[in-house]
């Protein structure tokens, strides 16, 4: 890389330009790039919703009920005469209002518990793991439905319930990571030097454990979006006329047998696209973090 290059060009080549870095990542994991693109598009739609949406998402046009897709209403209108396209765009705000806090909450609960269980071991570990077993042995969606139905339908209840139900996954993940790291030479060395437990956990173990957990984050967020849509579809989550995708599918369900297919179809496509994007992003992050995984094609 050096001898034949003129000296004045060195500072430029010393660090590849940012665009080259992005391209490099995209080449190493197209999955990651595709996922990131989809998720960013939804994030933009959520932020710019008022400017992107042709109509107010909850404004009802009483004389324009159940119109098929046309120029004024690109995806048609629903049974209340509301514009589907605008509702879908504003719906991405609900998706992010669920997936961001749910991800943070389940990480914030799961991470310390996993550190504790893994580092302490003994009865603390035993109790925490048994509790996680209780939740794992059970179809989570039903538990979420039952708890949210009992606690009352609101965004905050959905976030708390879904976040807590998902935290054992992170706890398990972090615990496994800690168990592997506890005997790692650099941790043993730190302990031999007389580092305090807190320092070992915070400085030596936590950064490594966090990496493994964040790789799982997008996939868990995809799950959170799905489950909150399911709650809304059953009618115990966020309620119509709020433009939440699951609630919109619920509204459209009755029109499927009378031929107004667009009311239920488009929210479903939108939901699938975001879930696919998040899953691709998660797979991509894991590919980038663990090149062996990519090579073996797992």
């Amino acid at each position: 890389m050096s001898a034949h290059i003129a000296p004045h060009s060195l500072p430029v080549t010393a660090r590849p330009p940012r665009s080259a870095l992005l391209l490099g990542i995209a080449r190493r994991s197209p999955t990651f790039a595709a996922g990131l693109l989809i998720v960013l598009a939804f994030a933009l739609a959520a932020i710019l919703a008022p400017w992107l949406a042709p109509h107010d998402p909850v404004q009802s046009f009483p004389d324009k009920v159940l119109l098929p897709p046309q120029s004024d209403f690109p995806l048609g209108t629903d049974g209340n005469g509301m514009d589907l396209a605008s509702r879908l765009i504003f719906g991405s705000r609900y998706a992010f209002a669920i997936l961001l806090p749910v991800g943070l909450l389940s990480l914030a609960v799961g991470l310390p518990l996993g550190l504790l269980a893994g580092y302490r071991g003994g009865w603390v570990d035993e109790v925490l793991m048994r509790a996680a077993d209780v939740l794992r042995a059970f179809p989570t969606i039903i538990l979420a439905l039952a708890v949210v139905a009992a606690a009352g339908p609101s965004l905050i209840n959905v976030v708390i319930v879904v976040g807590l139900l998902d935290s054992p996954i992170f706890m398990r993940l972090v615990r496994a990571e800690v168990l592997a790291l506890r005997r790692a030479p650099f941790v043993v060395a730190a302990r031999a030097q007389g580092c305090s437990t807190a320092r070992i956990i915070l400085v030596h173990i936590l950064p490594n454990a966090i990496l493994g957990a964040t790789a799982q984050l997008p996939i868990r967020m995809a799950w959170a979006v799905r489950i909150s849509a399911t709650l809304a579809f059953i009618g115990v989550g966020i309620q119509a006329p709020a433009p939440e995708w699951g609630a919109m599918i619920r509204q459209g369900a009755e029109y499927v047998i009378s031929g107004e297919w667009w009311v239920a179809t488009f929210p479903g496509f939108t939901l699938i696209l975001l879930v696919i994007g998040l899953n691709l992003l998660g797979d991509g992050v894991q590919d980038l973090l663990d090149p062996r995984r990519r090579a073996s094609g797992k």
């Binding site: 995809a222 799905r226 849509a229 399911t230 579809f233 699951g246 599918i249 459209g252 369900a253 499927v256 047998i257 009378s258 031929g259 297919w261 239920a264 179809t265 479903g268 939901l271 699938i272 879930v275 696919i276 899953n279």
Partner: peptide, 18 residues
Amino acid sequence: FSVPTYWLGLMAIFVFFY
């Protein structure tokens, strides 16, 4: 993985029943 089963059911009803 990503498709909501209930939505798939609705789509199947539209196509194969309606």
